[in-house]
Nucleic acid binder design. Structure first.
Lengths: 232, 232
DNA sequence: CGTTCAATTGATCAGCGTCAAACTAGGTGG
DNA sequence: CCACCTAGTTTGACGCTGATCAATTGAACG
C-alpha cells in the first residue's frame, strides 16, 4: 500500500482518533486491489468478510429483488462502505460494483470486530459513522415517501450545486440512468423530469447543469434540513 | 418508577450488559410520564433532549414535508427510539406521537452521552442497536423502491403472521390508515390492495386476517431475508 | 341513539412505467 | 480520418399503478 493511501485512510473520521497500534493491526491484515470497471465486489446476501474502503475510482451500492434492481448509493474516495454488516457480522444487504477502474482496500471483518472490541475510541467512531449512515437512509426514505420524482430531482440538483460551490453551474458526476435509479425513477422519466424543470430555471444539456433561477427552483423543491442537509 | 419498569428497561439489549452503577446514573436522571393518546412527544427538527423508551402503550414515528405526512415506524414496549439523534446530539429526523395512552421513560440525552463515553459495554450495545436500526431502514427503503404496494402488503402480512405464531390467523395491530401510510400508500389504495390479495388466499374482515394459502401468497410476495427478515 | 371518525367503494385523474423508435456520443477499426 | 458500432439518452404513444375526490357504509363511544 502506498504511504499516501495509508495516510488518507488514517485521516478518515472512522480511523482518525484511534490508537495507532490498533490501526496498524487493521492495516497489516489489509488487502489492496485494483479492479476494472463493472466488477461486482460484493453480493447481497453473502457473509461480510471485509470492510471496504474506496481509495480511488467509484463504487455503486445497489439492491435487487425479483429481476428488479435499484441504486442505493454511490461511494467515492475516501469512504468506507458496509460498516453495519461488518460490525454485526451479518450478511450484506446491498451489492457493490465498480463504476470505474477503482482501487479498493479490504479490511478483514474479523480484524475490524477485534479492534472494535479492544479500542474504545474506534468503537466511538464506529457509532458516529453508523448514526450518520442511519440518518442518511432515513432522509432518503422520507424523500421517497413524501416527494414526487420531480421534487426529488430538484432537491438533488440543489444539493449538487452546493457541493460544486454554489456557482449555479456544474456537471453531473454519474450516468443519468444511474441517477434515475438512485432517485427512484426510470431513465425515461428522468429525461421528462429534466424537461419539466426547465420552466423553473434549470438547463441541462448532456451532463452539464445550469441553474439560472435558484429562487424559482427552490419554490418547487422546498428543501429542508431534515431531508436534504447531510450534516443535519 | 415502578420496579418492574426498572427491571424491564435493564433487560433491554441496549442496557442489559452495562455496568449497574452507570445504569443507575441513567435511571436517576430519568423522568417517567403518562401521556394520553394522540400527544406529540417530539417534533422533527427539534434538538434531541431525551432518549425515549416506550414502557407501555404505543408510539408512532412519522415525518412531514410540505403538508404531506408519512408513518415511518410504530414503536411498542419495551423499546427505545431516536437513539441516533441522542448519540449524535443532532435534531430529530422524525416526530413521535402516542397512538394510545402510553407510559414513556425519558432519559436526558446528556446523561446518555456521558455514560456512553464512560461505559464501553454500553457503547458496544449502542453500536449493535444502531447497526440494527440502520439495516431495518435500508430494508424498508429497498421494499419501497423494488416492490409495488400490493407486494409490500403481502410481505407485511407474511411477517405479521410469523410474529403471531404462524397460525395463519391474526389481528392487525394498527389502524388501516396508519398501516397504509407505513407501507407507502393511501388508505383507499390499501383497501383495494386487500381485495387484490383475495385470489391469493387472504381474507381480511375488519382487523382480522386469515391466510388460507400461504404458498399462493408467497408466490406473489416472494419474501427474501435481505428485505423481510428483521434478524438478517 | 346520535355523533364521529375510520373504512370502503366508485369515478376520475395524475404520475410514472413500459415499449418502441429515433437520436446522440464515445470508442473502434478499417 | 472517417465510417461504423455500441450504449446511453431522448421522444412519443400507451397503459398500469396508485392518488384524489366524493359519497356511502360501518364501527366505536359517549
Amino acid at each position: 500500500m502506498k504511504d499516501t493511501d495509508f495516510q488518507e485512510i488514517k485521516d478518515l473520521p472512522l480511523f482518525h482518533n484511534m490508537d495507532n497500534s490498533n490501526f496498524d493491526t487493521l492495516i497489516r491484515g489489509a488487502y489492496i486491489q485494483n479492479f476494472p470497471t463493472q466488477v461486482e465486489l460484493i453480493t447481497e446476501g453473502e457473509a461480510s468478510n471485509f470492510l471496504h474502503i474506496v481509495a480511488s475510482g467509484c463504487v455503486e451500492l445497489f439492491a435487487s429483488w425479483n429481476e428488479r434492481e435499484t441504486s442505493m448509493a454511490t461511494v467515492r474516495p475516501m469512504s468506507t462502505f458496509i460498516l453495519a454488516a461488518t460490525i454485526k457480522d451479518a450478511p450484506y444487504l446491498m451489492s457493490a460494483r465498480t463504476m470505474e477502474k477503482s482501487r479498493v482496500v479490504l479490511l478483514p471483518s474479523q480484524d475490524v470486530r477485534k479492534v472494535f472490541d479492544k479500542d474504545n475510541i474506534f468503537a466511538r467512531s464506529v457509532v458516529t459513522e453508523l448514526a450518520q449512515c442511519y440518518r442518511t437512509v432515513v432522509k432518503n426514505s422520507k424523500g421517497l415517501k413524501l416527494r414526487t420524482s420531480i421534487e426529488r430531482l430538484a432537491n438533488y440538483l440543489i444539493k449538487q450545486n452546493i457541493y460544486a460551490g454554489e456557482t449555479g453551474e456544474f456537471d453531473l458526476k454519474t450516468e443519468k440512468r444511474l441517477l434515475a435509479s438512485y432517485l427512484g425513477m426510470t431513465p425515461e422519466n428522468l429525461s421528462r423530469a429534466i424537461k419539466a424543470l426547465q420552466p423553473y430555471g434549470v438547463k441541462i444539456s448532456g451532463a452539464h447543469v445550469i441553474i439560472t433561477d435558484m429562487n424559482d427552483l427552490e419554490s418547487l423543491a422546498k428543501p429542508t434540513p431534515s431531508i436534504d442537509d447531510p450534516d443535519h
